[in-house]
Design a protein around this nucleic acid. Structure first.
Lengths: 251, 251
DNA sequence: CTTGACTCTGCACGAAGTTGCACGCTTTAT
DNA sequence: ATAAAGCGTGCAACTTCGTGCAGAGTCAAG
C-alpha cells in the first residue's frame, strides 16, 4: 500500500467517524503502529488533522462546531493567546479579532487587568462576560456566519469611532512577499479598517499560517508591527518577517 | 475513547445543561470517576469550567448565570419561544431581544425560513450561526454583562437605522397598570428604541412575569400590540391585558 | 550489472502519558 | 454527631510516543 493511499484512507476514516485511533488503523491496514504514527504526525504537520494521544481528531473547523473547535485548540494557539494577552497594559483600548486564537487570547487575560476590548466577534463578547475588569465594546454589522464576526459598511463606520492602542489580528496566511491574507473579501476590509484605527497591529499566527497565502490581501507586511508565533518556529522562518520590520514574539 | 474527545464531551454537556456531575459522566462514558475527576481538574486549570463538589459548573459566575438560566429554561419558555418563532413570515425583518426566552425563540425558528434577525445580543447572534436561512444584523455598543446585550448611545443610534416588522421583547415584569418593566435603566432605553422602530411589539412573558413589576418602566402597556404567554395561564389573568388592547397568544 | 544514495518500514528501548485502585482527608447530608 | 459521598494523592500496570537503527526496495549514474 502506498503512503499517499494510506494517508488518504486515514483522512477518509477521520472525516467519516470524526476520530481515528492509531492502533485500530494499524490493524485495519496491517501495518505497524509506528508507520501509522508517522503518518499521523505528518498529516498533523500539514494541518490536516489534530494529533492527540492515542490517535487523531479532525482539524477542520467545519466538522467540530465552534465551541468544539475551542475545546480542541492546540497548545500552540493557547500559547500564542497567552503571550498576546500579556502584551496588554492596564487602561489600554484593544481591538480583538474573531477566530479561535483570539478566543484563547481573551481566555488568558489576567484576572485583575482593567482595559477596554473592542470586538466585532459576538463569541469574543460572550467570552468576556466572565471577565469583570474588561469593558467590552461590540462592533455591530451584518453577521458573517463562517467566521462569526460582524462585517459590512456599518461595521466599518463603527470601527472609525475608535482609536485603539493595539489590534490583535488573526489571519489565514502571512507570507514574506504577499503579506497578510484572509479567505473573505469582506473580512479583509474589516481587518484593514481595524488596523488603520489602531496604533499598533500585532498578527497572531499559528504555525500553519506562516508562509501561506489566501485569496484576499489584507495589508502588505510592513503595515503590521508585531507578530506572535509558536515557540517551536524555526529561526530561519522568522528571519523573513524580522527583515520586513516586524517585532517577532515567540510564545 | 480519546482523552480530548472526552473533554470535549464534558464541555458540550456543560454548555448544554449548565452543569455536569462526575458520577453521571463516569457512567455515561464507562470510565472510573477518578478519570472524570482528573479531566474536570484539568479543564478547571485551563479555565474552561468551574470545579465544584460533585461535578462542575460553567467557567464564570456570570456565564454560569446565563447558561444556567438557559438550562433551566422551562417547558413554558420553550413553548413561548416556539409560538413566537411561528409568527415570523418569510422575508420579514425581526428585532429579537436578549434573554433566555429569546434564545428559545431562535432555537425554534423553522429550518427553511428565510428572514432577517436584528439583535443586540451576541448570544443570539452566535446561536443563529447554525441557521442558514437567517440573515443576522448585530447591533453594536457597550456590552452590559449582566444581560449580555449591547447598550448605550451607539446602540440606540444603530437601532434607528432599522425599521422592523416585529420586535419580540423580553421583560422582567408586565403589570396591567404599571406596564412593561425591566431591571436596568439602560436596557429600558434600548427596549424603548427597538419598540419605536418596529411596526409591532410582541411581549414574551413566562408566567412569573405576569402581574410583576421591576424598577424601570419601558413603555405603558398600550404601546405593545401582542403578548405571548404559557398555555396554562388563567383566563382572568389574561383578561386585563386583552382589555388594554393586546392580542394575547397562548403558547 | 553494480554501486551508492535515498526512502520506507518495522523493531527496540527509554520516556511520557493514561487509568484504576487504595488510602486518608474533606465536604455534605441526615 | 454520624454516615455517606466526594476528593486528592501516590502508586502500579499498561499504553502510547519518539528516536535511533537496520533491512528491504527503488532508482539512476557509472
Amino acid at each position: 500500500m502506498l503512503t499517499q493511499q494510506r494517508k488518504a484512507h486515514i483522512l477518509a476514516v477521520l472525516k467519516d467517524t470524526g476520530q481515528v485511533v492509531a492502533k485500530t488503523l494499524s490493524e485495519q491496514l496491517n501495518l505497524s503502529e509506528d508507520t501509522i504514527r508517522r503518518d499521523l504526525r505528518e498529516l498533523a504537520a500539514e494541518g490536516l488533522l489534530q494529533r492527540v494521544h492515542g490517535g487523531a481528531l479532525p482539524a477542520s473547523p467545519a466538522l467540530a462546531d465552534f465551541s468544539g473547535r475551542q475545546a480542541i485548540a492546540t497548545d500552540g494557539k493557547k500559547a500564542i493567546g497567552r503571550a498576546a494577552a500579556a502584551m496588554i497594559r492596564p487602561g489600554q483600548v484593544v481591538f480583538v479579532d474573531g477566530g479561535t486564537t483570539a478566543v484563547q487570547l481573551v481566555r488568558h487575560l489576567q484576572p485583575g487587568l482593567e482595559a477596554t476590548i473592542v470586538t466585532h466577534s459576538p463569541s469574543i463578547a460572550v467570552e468576556l462576560v466572565a471577565h469583570p475588569g474588561m469593558t467590552v465594546e461590540m462592533i455591530g454589522g451584518r453577521l458573517f456566519k463562517h467566521s462569526v464576526v460582524a462585517v459590512g459598511a456599518s461595521a466599518i463606520e463603527s470601527i472609525a469611532r475608535f482609536r485603539a492602542d493595539i489590534y490583535f489580528m488573526g489571519v489565514t496566511g502571512i507570507h514574506p512577499e504577499i503579506g497578510l491574507t484572509t479567505g473573505d473579501s469582506e473580512e479583509a476590509v474589516i481587518k484593514r479598517a481595524l488596523s488603520r484605527h489602531a496604533a499598533e497591529t500585532i498578527v497572531l499566527a499559528s504555525s500553519e499560517k506562516l508562509g501561506a497565502a489566501s485569496p484576499y490581501v489584507i495589508l502588505p507586511m510592513n503595515e503590521a508591527q508585531g507578530l506572535v508565533v509558536e515557540r517551536s518556529t524555526a529561526e530561519e522562518t522568522i528571519a523573513a518577517y524580522r527583515k520586513a520590520g516586524m517585532t517577532v514574539t515567540k510564545a
